[in-house]
Design a protein around this nucleic acid. Structure first.
Lengths: 204, 204, 204, 204
DNA sequence: CGCTAACCGAGACGGTACGTCTTGTCTTGAG
DNA sequence: CTCAAGACAAGACGTACCGTCTCGGTTAGCG
């Protein structure tokens, strides 16, 4: 469901206004190498030992090439995660709200597997520590997912299928709260039965 | 929110086994000054700018006195939070499961106010970055709260008051998931109506 | 007193083998600022209070820039001394061995004035404490001076002008022994009359 | 020739004025253990790694017991050296000035053997770095030896046996200069032939 | 026999500097 | 104008010692 990473540097004028600029073009090879290196090093050593220097060295690029295009290592990882997670999580609309919700949740949970979960945990951590990155993290990663689930639950709400006393917004918080709490705090599995349990709790 | 601070150094033999040791005693004044300094600096500058050096300087102690008793700044903060939050969150048992749960959740939410929430967010972040601290964080802070809510919900479950399809464990995850998700991701308020909504969702 | 400072980093391959390397060049400004700062701080506070941290701060550089190019403060001082003392002490060869020796000794003694003597005493001290530095100190500072005096005395010896029972090597030890003993132990002056006395003692 | 170490603390009133004081007596066992520990650790690890903490630990005493009786590690070493060197270097007076001088120098050189030379080099180094210790070092160790050789050479001078142009003071500097220069700078041996060479150079 | 004084071991204390590490910027020559 | 390389200023890290202070526990004389 994460659809579009931003390959442009964060604080730079829109390239569309000057579609052709003089000078050497950005190296697509370096970009990919940096994203891959960040992901690998996270898996190998953990976020605490993930450094811009290490990423650049592993990628075979200079540090400046990282800093030219990303504000820091967290944003590299953010783009790497969105790139990895580019496969769409469907937003089904079959008319059967319970089936739709279950499918969405099951697909979401299924996408939360080890290489990606490490990155998600690191990103959520960095978002707490660096408020500016926190904003980018919420806008890029959290909000699109919230909106997807929100539209699904809005439909259910309009049809009177939402559990009594629940609002769509509260239901979204309960669903993603469960997801993140397991990722961050307990490490308990996110599996299909849990999606079913959530579905039954939020609807009716 | 927290009931039991650990005034003993993290990895040290139980003092009870050697009730009198030679040498100068640990300075209670320094201990308190360090905890207070950590809390103040977190509030003033944020976790990113919280340094052991700064804490020691503000507390008027040497750095070694910090490192002698805590593995790092996160553990200082962990003890500071538990010390600050020593006020008991009641674990009511009136027979009215809904009232009991609502009281517990409302008290828990009420304890999550700005100076403390900053610390909690920082601690959860550090727990993601430093796995060893993560274990201490879960054992010291998360688990006791989970167990408290767990016993409350076990009673409700035994009385058939839990919502259908929910287990006590899943209900605990939903409750704390909502709490932490709002702390970490949305910043939305944790207020009494939310406690009521949660109570109605988890019971019946 | 010293003829050849080593402007190259201590343990680095000869730059001539790789005449052009990528990357930013070493800052000549920083190098000079560090040497000057070390010399000034030594004069102001003494070797005991001379710290790498202080040198870097005074020089307006980072500590790493010191450690990148020198193993420690003693090596900075060693280079500063050799740089300061770059003025040549002549190695005269007039045929008059007594006049030659006297000129050499008088020039050597004349170069041993307060700002430099402080550094020399500190360097000799460090050479005793840090054996690895001791080797560098002997190779860089002591040996060239020994060899200069040695060639002068070899000529005198070949001409039969050396005092009976003395070898050139022993004479070198007597001359520099007197110099260093006064620097390190008594603080007595190193003046022209002493050079004359030494000359008459070593020759004939 | 070092005859009397000072077993009293450096800056303390003369014990003779209050010959009997109440309270526990100084532990002779601790004193000896500290001196021995300092000497051993110097031999094992070198002066750079000789610490008061290490000495106290090796000696089985507290740090305070070291600081109560000595200003620092250098003074411990100074007393250890003077204690080791308590065997008298004779100050012969046979009427044969050359024989007397040779005997004195040969005995002095013979006393400069490895365990002691390490300590002497460290002490001379510390004397350069810590001016206050330098004064104690000169008064305790250097001056007595200078005075011994000085009286010997005064006798020779009065008898007209000193080399022409040499004063007794200059001769003392030449002799000890050679000794210390070899200790500190070259490491060349101090043997009987060198004593003979020095004798022939200084007398006649 | 207690009292007071001084020393003992142990070890925590406030400091200071160490040498390393990482950050984000700047500089260089090549493409 | 970007690239790889790498030096730069800045500053925190965690460690090691310094010299001091504080414990409880011993030894000594003196009253």
């Amino acid at each position: 469901m994460i659809e579009q990473a931003n390959p442009e540097p964060v604080d730079r004028a829109d390239a569309a206004s000057t579609p052709v600029r003089p000078g050497r073009r950005r190296s697509e090879e370096s970009r990919r190498a940096i994203l891959a290196a960040a992901y690998e090093l996270l898996a190998e050593a953990g976020y605490a030992r993930l450094t811009v220097e290490g990423v650049a060295a592993r990628a075979g690029t200079g540090k400046q090439t990282v800093y030219r295009w990303w504000p820091g290592k967290a944003d590299v990882l953010l783009e790497a995660v969105t790139a990895h997670a580019r496969q769409h999580i469907p937003l089904p609309d079959t008319g059967d709200h319970a089936a739709d919700l279950h499918a969405f949740l099951a697909a979401t949970f299924a996408a939360a597997t080890p290489p990606t979960t490490d990155a998600l945990r690191a990103l959520m951590a960095e978002a707490q520590i660096d408020p500016a990155f926190g904003t980018r993290f919420r806008d890029t990663l959290l909000r699109p997912r919230r909106e997807a689930l929100g539209t699904l639950l809005d439909r259910a709400h309009a049809a009177g299928a939402l559990a009594p006393h629940l609002t769509p917004a509260a239901a979204v918080d309960l669903a993603f709260g469960l997801l993140w709490y397991r990722l961050l705090a307990t490490g308990d599995p996110l599996d299909e039965p849990l999606a079913a349990l959530l579905t039954r709790t939020l609807l009716r």
